[in-house]
Amino acid sequence: MSPLLSVENLRISFPSRQGPVEVVRGVSFTLGRERLGIVGESGSGKSQTGRAILGLTPVSGKATADRLEFDGIDLRNATPAKWRSLRGARMSMVMQDPKFSLNPVMTIGKQLMEAVKLHGGASEARDKSVAMLEAVQIRDPGRVMAAYPHELSGGMGQRAMIAMMLVTEPDLLIADEPTSALDVTVQIEVLRILDRLVSERGMGLIFISHDLELVSTFCDRVLVMYAGRVVEELDAAKMNEAKHPYTRGLLGCLPKIVGDVRPLPVLARDAAWLE
C-alpha cells in the first residue's frame, strides 16, 4: 500500500538581516494510517513542518521539498483552488489553543456547520455537527452549538475544535500540541477521542508535541527533531532504546514522580548534533 503522505527533503527558510535562516533542514518521512509523533523543543521546526504539509507556511517563509505527496497528489505546486479542496475536507489541523483558533464572535454551531456546508452536505449540516460534538464526548451538544467560544472551558473548546476538524472526515489530521493547554485529566480524555477516531476511521495522525513521555505512550512511531532536523526515528514502545544523545538527554531531564535523581541531569548540547 502506498503511504498516505510522503515527505522528502523538506526545507523551510525565513529571510532575516543576515540572509535566509533555515528552520527546517531536510526532513523526510512517510505516514500511513497510523499515529506519528513529532517531538522537539521550541524552535526545533516541528510546528513549521506540520504547517508546511498543509501549505500554511507564513508568506515570508519559503518551503521546498523534493517530494511532498498526499494520497498521490503532488502538493508542491498545488493551486489555491486545489488547496481549498484538500484543506478541511481531506486534511486538517488542530491548533494548540482554542482561545486563539476559534472565531470569538461566531457560535460553535455556526462554525461547525460552516465547515460541513463548504464541503457539501448543507441539508444535514446541523445533524452532522451535533453528532460530531457527541462523538467528542460533549454531553450537552445543544448548548454547545449555541455557545460562543468564551462561554466554554479550555477542554470543551479544544473538543469543539477537534469536532470542527473531524466533521468533514479527513484522511489526515495534523494536531499541533492539541492538549498542551489542558489539564492532565482532560488531556487524557481528548487523546482517547483522537485515538478512537484513528482506529475507527483509519485516519492518519501527525501528533506534534514537546512532551516526549506523552508521545511515547500515545503514538506508534516518533520522530525526534532538533534544530530543524530529524535526529532519530523510533518505535514509540522502544523509547528507552533511544540512541541519540539528544533523545536520551530529553528523557533523562524530566523529573519523575517515583525515583529521586538530584540534581536532574541537564542536557549538554553538542555542536555536532547540528550537522
Partner: peptide, 9 residues
Amino acid sequence: DASIQAEVL
C-alpha cells in the same frame, strides 16, 4: 522546555 526546566529546578 523540558531541558531548561531541569536547569531551573
